[in-house]
Design a protein around this nucleic acid. Structure first.
Lengths: 214, 214
DNA sequence: CATTGCCGTGTTGTGAACAATACTGTTAAC
DNA sequence: GTTAACAGTATTGTTCACAACACGGCAATG
């Protein structure tokens, strides 16, 4: 499965990049040709991505890119809040001096991005910051779960970055998180992370009312 | 995959039942014969259970039942604490009167089991109570994640039930959870659930020191 | 005109055969 | 006695072909 694992990764990336939009049918033969492998490898990849929640498979009807409703995105973010709260708390306890510097540097870059109104850069830095916290926490199980949840809701996270004024609010919340982590205050870090994601949920809930698509 | 899904379920159950102990090799041909299906179906099942974390697959070397160290069981339980805290809080907000009665009935059965020192029954009821809370919370995402985490640590949970005096302590904690949920007090329910799982973690940590196997 | 039955096409599900790889025990050399 | 090379076996990885199923259009019927 050396090659097949790589096929799974390629397909996952392609879905996350938007090469296959939500609802799109994923036909084994087409994918096999696209990635230059046999149908068996594609099948394995589809089973795996189905388990990850990125792909939906129906018996005898094939696979499609899973469509995540706003309602489900709220649930995903709630689960993230619980798990990333744990992670933030652990990160506060376990961060080395070098890792603290890393977080501060990321925060500085985020501040720059907000000042220059570079929403794309901010979105990437946002992802990087959360990823760095996961690494610092040294908690494999939570890390894996969170990475998966982030992938599942990736589409909506992207929309979020485009909301006017959102970046400034988000920046302040991230600053609170980084400060608590660098101060080594676990409970404060957990609370700050939960606050941050609660505010994400607020935005999602606002959409939920008059949005049934995507 | 109508049949194949059932094969995955059968294999998962067999692993959880202990029919295949941790570390045991899972040979495709043997499994195919055992369940009366082709190798392809078995392969799909193994890929799926690998994604679930119950099975480990190495390239060209086959699949084995994943061995969960005590250290990893601690991590799993920490993640459960975060997610089941969320679930307990939601359950407190969303439980109907009928569901509250259901919880009280389960608690009564657990009390009986402790009085009769029926550890096996208690262990089953324990599982049932947590499962019922997941259902009451009506939170699909967290529910799925928790169910998976419980499966992964199932072996250790079973050992836990055999610790002398553990059942009485556990019963008191479950009573606190049920009382908070039936009272509709979300934060208290979340705190009670976290307390309960923190005490599970304490026992695991105690083992961690002088236990490297299983 | 609406509805039902039927057939053709596209796609998935499954089984069998073959190739590639890793493990085991044996023999030979140093 | 230890190590290295080697063959034999067991198991996985891959490909192919075919069967099973779902969907679409078309025609026949009421």
């Amino acid at each position: 499965m050396a090659i097949a694992a790589s096929v799974t990764d390629q397909l996952r990336d392609d879905i996350l990049e938007g090469a296959f939009p939500p609802g799109e049918r994923l036909i084994e033969l087409q994918l096999a040709e696209r990635y230059g492998v046999g149908r068996a490898a594609i099948r394995a990849a589809l089973v795996e991505l189905d388990a990850e929640g990125l792909v939906r498979r129906e018996a005898n009807r094939g696979a499609t890119v899973r469509r995540i409703s706003v309602t489900e995105a709220v649930e995903i973010t709630q689960a993230r809040a619980a798990l990333e709260g744990l992670i933030a708390g652990l990160a506060a306890e376990r961060a080395t001096d070098g890792e603290r510097d890393e977080l501060c540097a990321l925060l500085a870059e985020m501040t720059d991005a907000v000042e220059h109104e570079d929403k794309l850069a901010y979105s990437k830095l946002n992802r990087a910051l959360h990823g760095t916290l996961c690494r610092i926490a040294r908690h494999r199980v939570a890390d894996d779960l969170v990475a998966n949840l982030r992938n599942r809701a990736a589409h909506h996270q992207f929309r979020l970055a485009l909301v006017p004024g959102r970046a400034a609010e988000s920046l302040a919340q991230h600053r609170a998180i980084v400060e608590a982590v660098t101060a080594g205050d676990g409970p404060a870090a957990e609370a700050a992370m939960r606050d941050h994601l609660a505010s994400v949920i607020d935005v999602l809930r606002h959409w939920e009312a008059f949005d049934t698509r995507a």
